[in-house]
Design a protein around this nucleic acid. Sequence first.
DNA 1: CCAGTGCGCTACAATTTATGTAGCATACTG
DNA 2: CAGTATGCTACATAAATTGTAGCGCACTGG
Lengths: 90, 90
Amino acid sequence: MRLLDLLGRRWALRIVWELREHPRRFRELQDAIKASPTTVNARLAELRAARLIQLDPASGYRLTVEGRELLRLFLPLHVWSEKWAKKLPT
Amino acid sequence: MRLLDLLGRRWALRIVWELREHPRRFRELQDAIKASPTTVNARLAELRAARLIQLDPASGYRLTVEGRELLRLFLPLHVWSEKWAKKLPT
DNA sequence: CCAGTGCGCTACAATTTATGTAGCATACTG
DNA sequence: CAGTATGCTACATAAATTGTAGCGCACTGG
């Protein structure tokens, strides 16, 4: 599954998630997810190649139309995970 | 996001995916996803701790009720990804 | 009794990936 | 021309993953 190859990498889905509301700068993303610039940049490159995000020089990294579709489909999963997480130990 | 911490690791979501139809044995999973036993075992332990999968000695690893919920929510995403993947280069 | 098989899983060295920190190059601003 | 923000790279260290071998246990057929 191509999607899992991409999203099953550390920070990939998390970056999409951070872009859910508005575009973010490289450094903003870095701070938000607390990963190294090396890794952030690697994931950004992959997500760009996958056409899920794009860099708009004026405002920063943002979701593409496809990125927003992906996010929209992911939302129910997020809602579910809130309840799920509460039931877990620790 | 707790869910992303868990699923944003290599093979985690893939394992859930492989269990979608029926239970699988340790070695079956290993062969199916072609990862090392070390990693498979690490992910299995995490998924078990997260109560998404469970080991039934009689039949192998299987999704829990919660695991099946997660999978169900993931399905639309999978459908979408088929179309998405086709539009990509390489 | 005991060799054979399937099971979940571990040991361990090698490789790949991520981290943390520093800094580059460019562009814009006062 | 100093200051700042931008995306991003270099590089050494640490962590995760891989590949291969094999352990310990239970069960099975001869």
